[in-house]
């Protein structure tokens, strides 16, 4: 479902800074692939390239069968993208926000789909409330509904629980598990190890743009001879920094 092949991205400057360096991995339908890494590791850049918001300098990736370089619009039609930076239009109501994106995505019967999602995420009572008046938790639920309004086969979630309280985070984690069971392929970036251990089938540890290690959480713990995923993560990053 997602095949990443030697992706490279550098940002300007003299000399340019390599944000992602020859990154390759693969994720299947019904699987959650976790990208773990400290700040500045290249997680967001990788996910933005997969969402075709950024163009790679070299390498490519196929998302839901579409190449990110040659068919970016088809890729964007196949993904739901949610990150800490994907905001809501404050002057639209919760319903208008979801409906707007349903229409932009060309969803058939957009009103019905919108109403169903409002009900599904428990935000029906807030449907006519402007997004700038919603609580952080409610806003995040609207964001999730917006991201999946076209029922995409691939979900790209970039630190989706950042800044959320425990209860809202719980709702989001439950949604991820549900989507996984539904056969959706998920890329999930986080630096919260408990989330990764709970959700991810496979995990890639990124540091300074490079993939340091990859495997199931159990395999990573085994490779590093550590008891916890967090310790394994620290082990790999420290080894790379030496």
């Amino acid at each position: 479902m997602i095949e990443v092949d030697s992706l490279v991205k550098a940002f300007g400057g003299d000399p340019p800074k390599l944000a992602v360096d020859s990154l390759s991995f693969r994720a299947e339908p019904g699987q959650v692939y976790g990208l773990l890494g400290p700040n500045g590791a290249g997680k967001t850049t990788t996910l933005r390239m997969l969402a075709t918001l950024l163009t790679p300098d070299s390498g490519t990736a196929r998302v839901a069968g579409h190449d990110i370089r040659s068919s970016p619009e088809a890729v964007r039609a196949s993904i739901g993208y949610l990150s800490g930076n994907t905001g809501l239009y404050g002057r639209l109501t919760a319903r208008e926000m979801i409906l707007y994106f349903a229409r932009l995505q060309g969803v058939p019967e957009p009103e019905r789909r919108t109403d169903r999602l409002l009900y599904r995420f428990g935000i029906d009572d807030y449907r006519n409330q402007r997004c700038d008046a919603l609580s952080t938790g409610m806003g995040q639920k609207v964001s999730i509904a917006r991201a999946i309004v076209h029922d995409p086969p691939v979900l790209i979630l970039d630190e989706p629980t950042a800044g959320l309280d425990v209860l809202v985070s719980q709702t989001l984690l439950e949604f991820v598990e549900e989507a996984k069971d539904h056969g959706t392929c998920l890329i999930y970036s986080t630096h919260i190890m408990s989330e990764a251990e709970r959700l991810c089938d496979r995990v890639g540890i990124l540091h300074e743009g490079r993939l340091l290690a990859e495997g199931t959480p159990e395999e990573l713990k085994e490779q590093s001879a550590e008891r916890y995923l967090e310790s394994a993560f620290i082990h790999f990053v420290r080894a790379a920094s030496r």
Partner: peptide, 14 residues
């Protein structure tokens, strides 16, 4: 600044 441009760009819009 509000991040909505990223939301918009993640759709298949030209």
């Amino acid at each position: 600044e509000r991040g909505t441009i990223e939301t918009l760009l993640s759709t298949p819009l030209d």
